Computed example of a mutant assay.
Amino acid sequence: MSISIEEFGRLVVAKRGGRGVRAAATDVGISAATLSRVENGHMPDLLTFAKICKWLNRDPREFLGLETDEQGPPQAVAHFRKKRTVSAETATALGELILASQRALQARAKLINQ
């Protein structure tokens, strides 16, 4: 099950707590404006997404909907909603990330099963 971008934003707000947006953004390594947009449910670019996941101590697969099927190799599952804040470039980059993650998981499963 994937976590929505809105839930992702709520997790960022919860992690930030009472700290200011600028201080938290500095910890993440992004601008305060970008962090604020993510908190308000806007899709970040790939690099920003990775930085925020690291800061949240959360596996990006949670947000991408990557699941493991007991009967076969791991499969990626993603659901994109049409939203004006998501550019075609961002959607394409996220799709490529999902496919690369799926290939990496499949390669890992092969190594484990050898």
Rank of each mutant, 00 (worst) to 15 (best):
T34F: 00
L35V: 05
L35T: 01
L35K: 02
S36Q: 10
S36A: 11
S36M: 06
R37K: 11
V38D: 00
V38S: 01
V38H: 00
E39Q: 15
N40T: 10
N40S: 09
N40V: 02
N40Q: 12
N40D: 10
G41N: 05
G41C: 03
G41F: 05
G41L: 05
G41V: 07
H42P: 00
M43P: 00
M43W: 10
P44Y: 00
P44R: 03
P44H: 01
P44C: 04
P44Q: 01
D45E: 08
L46Q: 08
L46F: 01
L46R: 14
L46H: 05
L46V: 13
L47Y: 11
L47G: 09
L47N: 14
L47S: 14
T48H: 04
T48S: 07
F49T: 06
F49W: 03
A50N: 08
A50F: 05
A50H: 07
I52S: 00
I52K: 01
I52F: 03
C53H: 02
C53T: 07
K54P: 00
K54A: 14
W55E: 02
W55Q: 00
W55G: 02
L56A: 05
L56F: 08
L56I: 07
N57D: 14
N57A: 12
N57M: 08
R58M: 11
R58I: 09
D59N: 14
P60C: 07
P60M: 08
R61T: 13
R61K: 15
E62Q: 09
F63H: 01
F63P: 02
L64Y: 05
L64V: 07
L64K: 04
G65W: 02
L66Y: 13
L66W: 12
E67N: 14
D69I: 15
D69E: 15
E70C: 09
E70I: 14
Q71F: 15
Q71Y: 11
Q71P: 00
G72H: 09
P73V: 09
P74W: 06
Q75T: 15
Q75N: 15
A76C: 13
A76T: 08
V77W: 06
V77M: 11
A78P: 00
A78N: 07
H79P: 00
H79N: 09
F80K: 03
